[in-house]
Amino acid sequence: MSESSLDDIKVIVFQLKDEEYGVEVEQVKSIERVQHITRVPSTPDFVEGVINLRGVVTPIIDLRKRFNIEGLDHSDTTRVIIVTVEKMDVGLVVDAANDVIDIPRSAVEPPPQVVGGLEAEYIRGVAKLEKRLLVLLNLDKVLNSEEMDEMKEIEGQV
């Protein structure tokens, strides 16, 4: 038992378009249904806005936009995954969050170089599980994009 928990990573699996992604369960605070999102002006395109998460104003990021996948209207399965990165709570809008699974560390491979370039930096690795392929995310990179830095720089100057 202890052996398996050492060698396994517990991840929450979610869906974007037809690919499956995973974030480690330790980083996930909760999974919410979509509620009213208040748009915040002059923020990068992928920042959907903020929601009221039980009294705490929480920023929301649209992962489809972040990964340059074409947009989709929110549906019944759409979920907001609240993750904690560097002590900040941020919500990620995903098409569906369906599963929690253990994956052995040995199944995780570095991101395929073919994908390369831009995307590689927020992908931590790819896990091969029988017939499924799971993209593991590096959340720090997902949140801290150049656009974000640029935005802060502009604010600094103002």
């Binding site: 915040v40 903020v50 009221n52 009294g55 104003v57 709570d89």
Partner: peptide
């Protein structure tokens, strides 16, 4: 506050939660 992630958003000093549970800037 808007939280650390969005702090420093231009011309927005914070947020509040309205009676209907929605956030207003």
């Amino acid at each position: 506050s808007l939280g650390d992630y969005l702090s420093g958003t231009f011309a927005i000093s914070g947020a509040t939660i309205l009676g209907n549970g929605q956030v207003a800037l």
